[in-house]
Design a protein around this nucleic acid. Structure first.
Length: 773
DNA sequence: GCGGACTGCTTACCT
DNA sequence: ACAGGTAAGCAGTCCGCG
């Protein structure tokens, strides 16, 4: 049988756990897979007497009835190979009870790996590919053809937060590959509208519709749509039986909710957009605009009630567009998410909600299983706090100030992954007994020479696969295949680059501060060495950050000569570098303006400006400040025209003073990273959030608050208001000039040694040439 | 009692 | 809720000042 695994879970049938594998056309059930965990004793060899002791203990505590079997197995616990007990339980939900044996053994392991996920770790099956279930192998890596829909609801409200006990759902919209429709119960005039009798019928219809699809996209469906739908349905005694076998949806509560529909794939695109895009804020409209350049119709939540009362067809159009663009975003992210699901070897519902740290962990758990290595436990709160407190040195950073011409950027290809592989850095190879006496020490540690560690092995596999794909990409002309290969190489890269951070992540199972510290130590060693060699070769190194540096030639030379020298240098240095370590030519720049560490701008060969770290790329600066800094930078980098730069500043200030400005351009965005009352200091966005809460509005952790600064109070934090609350006359113009526009442009000008006082003087035009001599 | 220097908290960036 | 390094703003405190 050839089919594709899209979801899995387990159910309890006759008190037995049954694994469900939801394929596109079938549902497979596995009754033979049993939950288990491991127990380690103080000794390396285990005899039957030891097992009897455990059994006695379990019997005394009335737990033996939950044990199906106890086996002796040989496993490796990091560096140590030994016999341990495999305790097989009667049911996954009994495992937590059996953890009590921790009282009489040295340690227990793998007792908290969810049963359905455990199944995918232990068994040979990859989700989201066409799989041959007889031969247990991949048949095709095409993206599976699935029926997909985007779904969205509109809710009545009186200009406030909707209350599910009284505010009804008024509309639901759907969009699939063939178009879309809006279902409602008022007579709206719109081509795509379908009318039902009332809200109850609407809810029934929603259920009927959603059951036609395997994949359901929402935008914040985890925390809003399904939640609200469930509460409204309850009022009518309707159950949301959306599963493939009519199972009810499950709202898995946590820091963020997850809405699970057994046998289908609910993908909430909001967390995905947050993870994969770098935007100021993440409303559906923002994401659509950023991905596709489309301005979709927007109706503010507080006005939905009014449009409903007026039976305004714009509401239908808005709702339809919500579904349409949710679908478009879904289709856009789907291939990459499919790749993650395959590599991590867990189902899409899970991987689309995992952080990169969790993905790395599941990948490592799968590899550990294949390597007969025991998975270390998650740290308890105490251990977590201890880990949080220890810090270590990271990357090396050094910067010059000023403007330079003809520059190249050189960097190490995947510096940290190459170091990990080259030095075999892994918690299970760290300070092994077997290589203690014949290895050189790095920060007092060494790594096993006889066995490749879990992390280097996993990383090497990811990198090898990526290289292979890149080669395939180079020889294929088929655009579609190329695109898919590109998603695959991208997902492999993202996962490979997450391994170093994972090693130092305080909640990681395979945490090792020593390993992480050695990785950065070697990173610093190699970048410093490369710079030293470059200087000896004749380069002048300008700016260094972690794994790469910007450099010019010491004497004035042109582009071609510089690139020739660079190639010679790379050839020379790469011969000296060990293992996978490799320094690469990344790009050439006509000019670069370095302001401080982590803040600079470069002019590419095709005259484009790229900005790093400067206010232009930060969301917590008003648009007016960013626009001005950008124009100034352009005048300086592209034209070398200081006079023009000054003029831009003066014009902006003049416009602002004359009220010739859009309030939108004055909005400052700042994220709320904790509950407002938890802040130790006051800040504009915090004070504003506190007020909004007092007024009964909902403000969530993670929300990005947009505000403008108005006249009135002494402290800035007391002067923040929502943009829609103010008019131009309220704006504190002085604040915007002194605290928003001037500081960023002055910093840029000062990098050219133009001081504030000099700026104020009107003087003869200086050209950039003077700065290069 | 005032103003600048300094510190701690906070955010968002870079690699 | 993958790491450390970094700049910078704001609020609050410190410190000198015959």
């Amino acid at each position: 049988m050839i089919d594709c695994l899209i979801d899995n879970t387990y159910k309890t049938i006759d008190n037995k756990a049954v694994i469900y594998l939801y394929l596109i056309n079938n549902i497979l059930k596995d009754r033979n897979f049993k939950p288990y965990f491991y127990a380690e004793l103080d000794k390396n060899k285990i005899n039957l007497e030891d097992i009897e002791n455990i059994k006695d203990f379990l019997l005394k505590n009335d737990l033996l009835k939950y044990v199906e079997k106890i086996d002796i197995v040989k496993k490796r616990i990091l560096k140590e190979e030994k016999e341990i007990l495999k305790i097989i339980a009667t049911h996954p939900q009994k495992v937590p009870k059996l953890r009590k044996i921790k009282e009489i053994v040295k340690e227990i392991y793998e007792h908290d790996i969810p049963f359905a996920k455990r199944y995918l770790i232990d068994n040979d099956i990859i989700p989201m590919v066409y799989w041959d279930f007889e031969k247990n192998k991949v048949v095709s890596k095409d993206i599976p053809k699935l029926n997909m829909v985007a779904f969205d609801i509109e809710v009545y409200n009186e200009g406030k937060e909707p209350n599910p006990n009284k505010d009804p759902i008024i509309m639901a919209s759907f969009w699939d590959g063939n178009g879309g429709k809006v279902i409602t119960y008022k007579d709206f005039n719109h081509d795509n509208v379908e009318i039902v009798k009332n809200e109850k019928e609407l809810i029934k219809k929603i259920i009927e519709e959603l059951k036609k699809y395997e994949v359901i996209f929402t935008y914040n469906g985890d925390n809003f749509d399904f939640q609200y739908l469930k509460e409204r349905a309850k009022l009518y005694n309707i159950k949301l039986e959306l599963g493939r076998e009519g199972e009810e949806i499950k709202i898995k509560r946590g820091i963020s909710n997850k809405v699970y529909i057994p046998g289908r794939v609910h993908i909430d695109l909001y967390p995905i957009a947050k993870r994969l895009l770098k935007l100021t804020k993440y409303t559906l409209e923002d994401v659509v605009y950023n991905l596709f350049g489309i301005e979709k119709l927007k109706i503010h939540h507080k006005n939905i009630g009014l449009f409903w009362e007026d039976i305004d067809e714009n509401l239908v159009e808005y709702s339809l567009q919500d579904a349409k663009y949710t679908y478009k975003i879904g289709i856009y992210f789907f291939p990459l998410e499919v790749m993650f699901s395959r590599i991590v070897n867990q189902v899409l519902f899970e991987t689309t909600r995992m952080t990169s740290g969790q993905m790395v962990e599941y990948l490592l758990m799968k590899r550990a299983y294949l390597d007969n290595l025991i998975v270390p436990n998650k740290p308890d709160e105490k251990e977590y706090k201890r880990r949080l407190e220890v810090s270590y040195e990271g990357g090396y950073v050094k910067a010059v100030k000023g403007l330079y011409e003809n520059i190249v950027y050189l960097d190490f290809r995947s510096l940290y992954p190459s170091i990990i592989i080259t030095y075999n850095i892994s918690p299970d190879t760290l300070d092994c007994d077997c290589c203690k006496d014949n290895s050189e020490k790095i920060l007092g540690h060494w790594f096993c020479k006889k066995r490749i560690g879990l992390i280097p092995k996993t990383l090497k596999d990811l990198i090898d696969r990526r290289m292979k794909i890149k080669k395939q990409m180079a020889i294929t002309d088929n655009k579609e295949i190329k695109e898919l290969l590109n998603y695959e190489q991208l997902s492999l890269k993202i996962l490979a680059n997450s391994h170093y951070g994972y090693l130092a992540y305080p909640r990681a199972r395979f945490y090792s501060k020593e390993c992480a510290e050695i990785v950065t130590y070697l990173g610093r060693k190699y970048i410093k060495q490369a710079i030293e060699e470059a200087e000896k070769f004749g380069f002048k190194v300008l700016y260094i950050d972690t794994d790469g540096f910007y450099t010019t030639w010491k004497k004035k030379i042109d582009k071609d000569e510089l690139i020739k020298k660079t190639k010679e240098f790379l050839n020379y240095i790469n011969k000296k570098l060990p293992g996978l370590m490799e320094l690469e030519f990344e790009s050439f720049y006509r000019r670069a303006l370095f302001v401080t560490k982590k803040k600079y701008a470069v002019l590419t060969d095709d005259n484009k400006i790229e900005v790093k770290g400067l206010e232009i790329v930060r969301r917590d600066w008003a648009n007016i400040a960013k626009k001005t800094q950008k124009k100034v930078l352009e005048a300086l980098l592209k034209e070398g025209n200081i006079k023009k730069a000054k003029k831009i500043i003066q014009e902006t200030i003049k416009n602002l003073r004359e009220g010739n400005i859009d309030i939108e351009d004055l909005v400052i965005y700042t994220q709320l990273t904790k509950k407002p009352e938890e802040y130790k200091t006051s800040a504009p966005h915090v004070e504003l959030a506190k007020r909004l809460i007092r007024e009964g509005k909902r403000v969530n952790i993670g929300d990005v608050i947009g505000y403008v600064i108005v006249k009135g109070a002494e402290k800035v934090s007391e002067k923040a208001k929502l943009p829609e609350e103010v008019s131009k006359e309220d704006i504190d113009i002085n604040y915007y000039i002194e605290n928003q526009i001037l500081p960023p442009v002055l910093r840029v000008m000062e990098a050219l040694n133009i001081t504030k006082s000099e700026l104020k003087k009107e003087e003869k035009q200086k050209t950039l040439d003077e700065f290069f001599t």
